[in-house]
Design a protein around this nucleic acid. Structure first.
Length: 206
DNA sequence: ACCGTGATAATCT
DNA sequence: GATTATCACGGTG
């Protein structure tokens, strides 16, 4: 396969990730996640994210302390934190904030670019569609194998308050007060968002 | 609603 | 080393 041309900007610099995690989560909307493996380049536009803001955040994996799995989150920012869960799914995060802070942004849904096979609405599904697995854990997001480019921020930039929605994170009901924090971000009315807000709320409130 | 599936981490012997 | 509960999900009904 020929090299693909990316008209929508270069890779996000390291400094992009060295900011408050909620800010990075919001700013990742509209960017493009790209995975290169073999001769194949697969990508999609990020339309949904979640912020996991640090060890004090009871929904964050780092809240259990430094373990082999969470090691990468305690390291330098701008790297991929990829974990395997429920015996069959991978999830990909971008490590944020200065080294040692242990925080990350979970990428929850993509609008697929041409060439993608399968669904990309959901953290497990998007990893499957792009071929992301634990071999990508610790990968530099400024590198050549798994990276994020500037992309198309138009929907998120023109009317930020109207086009970016927030709500509680999915599947973190165990996290006490932290479960209700509005750390989930998505592009309003985007068909690739993993769950409609109404369904999220009904699920959350029961 | 129900459950597959296996890594992970805590808690034992 | 072994046991157990848990899980940032997704498919099915």
């Amino acid at each position: 396969m020929e090299a693909r041309h990316y008209p929508l900007g270069g890779k996000l610099p390291l400094a992009f990730y060295v900011r408050p995690t909620t800010e990075v989560a919001r700013d990742l909307l509209g960017r493009r996640l790209v995975c290169v493996s073999g001769g194949l380049t697969l990508s999609g536009r990020i339309v949904e994210t979640e912020a996991y803001v640090g060890p004090h955040d009871l929904a964050c994996h780092a809240a259990r302390g430094r373990t082999p799995r969470t090691e990468i989150m305690f390291g330098p920012p701008g790297r991929a934190y990829v974990y395997f869960i429920y015996g069959m799914h991978h999830c990909v995060n971008a490590v944020t904030e200065p080294e040692g802070h242990a925080s990350a942004v979970l990428i929850r849904a993509l609008e697929p670019d041409p060439g993608i096979d399968g669904r990309t609405d959901g953290p497990g599904r998007l990893c499957k569609a792009l071929g992301i697995d634990r071999s990508h854990n610790g990968e530099h997001l400024t590198g050549d194998r798994l990276f994020i480019i500037e992309g198309d921020r138009s929907a998120a930039d023109t009317e930020p308050s109207a086009s970016v929605k927030t709500g509680p994170r999915i599947g973190v009901g165990y996290a006490g007060d932290w479960a209700s924090k509005p750390y989930r971000y998505w592009l309003a009315d985007n068909r690739w968002v993993s769950r409609p807000y109404s369904r999220t709320m009904s699920r959350y409130e029961k």
